[in-house]
Design a binder for these strands. Structure first.
Lengths: 157, 157
DNA sequence: CCAGTTAGCTGTCTTAGACAGCTAAACACG
DNA sequence: CGTGTTTAGCTGTCTAAGACAGCTAACTGG
C-alpha cells in the first residue's frame, strides 16, 4: 500500500481501502446497533424506532401527528400507520385537537406510560452495550465525531 | 402535509437518558447516512444495501448464496430474494456450483461490472459527505471509536 | 362565501426481515 | 448399497417501513 496519496483526483477504491472508510464501518456498527435494539425492545412489544416515538411523547407530551411526522422526518402516511400500530398495541391513544378540527393529538396511555421505566432501563443497557468499556473522555470524543458527521450529512439536504 | 422535508430531521433527545447518548446520536447519524446513500445510489438502480452486495462480489468473486447470506448476516430466504432482485435488474447472474449440485454461484454480469466504477465513485462521495471536513487524524480517531463500538456490540450476540 | 391549503386516512407498490414448509442434492453410517 | 440426516435454495406468509397518489374534512385568507 502506497502511503503516497494520489492527488490526481482519482480517489482510491473504497473496497481496496481495507478498514479505511468510515461509511463502511458505520454501516456495520449500525447493523449491530439496530439488531441489539430490536432484541432489547422486542420483549416490550416495541418495534425498532417505536421506542423513540414513545420517548418523544413522554418528553414532549401530546403531539399532533403532523408534528410527529416532522420530528421523525417522515411522511404523514407513514406516521399514520405507525401511530395506528402503537394504538393497536395500546401504548398511545388519539383524541381530536380542540384547537384544530383537522388535527388529532397523540398521547401516551397509562399502559404506554407504564413502559417508560422499562424503556429507559433498556435504553441505558443499549448505551452500555454500545460504549460500556469507554471512559467518559473516549465517549465524548466519539460523540463529538458523530456529531461532526451528523452536521456534515445534514448539510446539503 | 406530505412534505415533512423541512423538518430538522433530528430525533428528539431521549429523555434524561443519563450517560452518553451515543446510541441516540448514532441513530440520527445512521438515518442521515442511509438517506444520503439512498439518494446517491438510486440513480444507478441500486437500493440501499445492494451496493454492498455488489462490492462484495467484485472483491471476492463468485459466491454461493449461503456464503452471501452468512456474510451479510441474514437468512437464506432473504438472500434468495435480494439476489433475485439484482438478477432481475441484470447486475448479477447465477449458475450452478459445479462442486455442489445444491448450491448456486452468484456472480456479477458485465452490466454489474460496468457499475463498479460508478459505485466506487459514489462511495467516495458518500465518504466525503460523511467525513469530508475531517483531518486524517480526526477520521482515524472516529474510526477507532466506531470500531470499539462494533467490537462491543458484536460481543455477546 | 369561495379557493386554496392543511391534516389525516387509505390504497398501492417496493423492499426488508423473520419464520415455516418444501424439494433436491450431498453426506454419513451401518 | 440403502437409509436417514444435513445442507442449499425456493416459496409462501406475516409484519413493517417508506414513498406516492388520491381522497375527505376542516381551516384560512381574500
Amino acid at each position: 500500500m502506497t502511503s503516497a496519496r494520489e492527488g490526481t483526483g482519482r480517489v482510491p477504491s473504497p473496497t481496496a481501502a481495507a478498514g479505511g472508510p468510515v461509511s463502511n464501518t458505520l454501516i456495520r456498527v449500525t447493523r449491530l446497533h439496530i439488531m441489539r435494539a430490536r432484541q432489547l425492545f422486542r420483549e416490550l412489544g416495541l418495534h425498532p424506532g417505536h421506542e423513540l416515538l414513545m420517548m418523544h411523547l413522554w418528553d414532549a407530551g401530546p403531539q399532533r401527528q403532523s408534528d410527529l411526522a416532522a420530528a421523525f422526518d417522515t411522511d404523514s402516511a407513514s406516521m399514520t400507520r405507525t401511530v395506528q400500530r402503537l394504538e393497536r398495541a395500546g401504548f398511545v391513544r388519539r383524541r381530536p385537537d380542540p384547537a384544530d378540527g383537522r388535527a388529532t393529538l397523540v398521547e401516551t396511555t397509562p399502559a404506554g406510560l407504564g413502559l417508560r421505566r422499562q424503556v429507559e432501563q433498556l435504553w441505558s443497557e443499549l448505551e452500555a452495550a454500545t460504549t460500556g468499556d469507554m471512559t467518559p473522555a473516549e465517549r465524548s470524543t466519539l460523540l463529538a465525531g458523530l456529531e461532526r458527521v451528523e452536521a456534515n450529512l445534514a448539510q446539503g439536504r
